[in-house]
């Protein structure tokens, strides 16, 4: 039994009767699992799209959830289907092994929160303008086109800036690790 099963199932049952606040908590919780699930399997841009597609599928197909069956298995079935769909669209030939639903739910909110804290510490090292770009695109899932429109930069400029910023952060991390290793 997956730890979140009872809580998510309660929220889902409430949502099916029209309880919007339970539904919001459900979708927000699921988003965290879905992000980490797709991030481990897809390119960053495609991953956030897949999260949104899955949320929409959950919404549109919510009548197919049968309360007698585990809710986490239902969500996992949809998430896996959307992953295969994405592979098919990108013509990538990959096999999706028959993992368990637990694979989707093993990455929980605390882990994400800790990772977020680390990330925001790291981001603080960037100049504010760059920081905002990275945050919008890599963390909040805003599309490149939207950011370009808002900032007045071209799409490729946005992509290049984000790419360089990530690279500089990455170099810094490597540098830190080397310094630390040298100190020992």
């Amino acid at each position: 039994m997956i730890a979140q099963e009872a809580q998510y199932r309660d929220w889902m049952l409430a949502a099916l009767t029209g309880d919007a606040s339970a539904y919001r908590m459900l979708l927000e919780g699921l988003t965290r699992h879905l992000r980490s699930y797709y991030a481990r399997r897809l390119d960053p841009g495609a991953a956030e799209d897949a999260v949104q597609e899955t949320l929409i599928a959950i919404h549109v197909r919510r009548a197919t959830y049968e309360p007698a069956l585990p809710f986490t298995a239902w969500v996992y079935g949809i998430a896996r289907y959307k992953l295969i769909d994405e592979y098919r669209r990108s013509k990538r030939h990959a096999t999706v092994s028959l993992e368990e639903a637990s694979d989707l739910f093993s990455h929980d909110a605390t882990e994400v929160a800790l990772a977020r804290r680390d990330v925001s510490k790291l981001l603080a090292k960037l100049p504010p303008a760059k920081r905002q770009l990275v945050k919008d695109i890599k963390l909040d899932g805003v599309s490149v086109a939207e950011v370009a429109k808002r900032t007045g930069l071209s799409e490729s400029a946005v992509k290049v800036t984000v790419h360089r910023a990530i690279k500089s952060l990455n170099d810094e991390l490597v540098q830190n690790r080397e310094n630390r290793d040298a100190d020992r």
Partner: peptide, 13 residues
């Protein structure tokens, strides 16, 4: 954005 999507779906329940 994903949080906007969630707000939209929640408002359409």
């Amino acid at each position: 954005r994903t949080d906007e999507l969630i707000a939209q779906l929640t408002g359409n329940l």
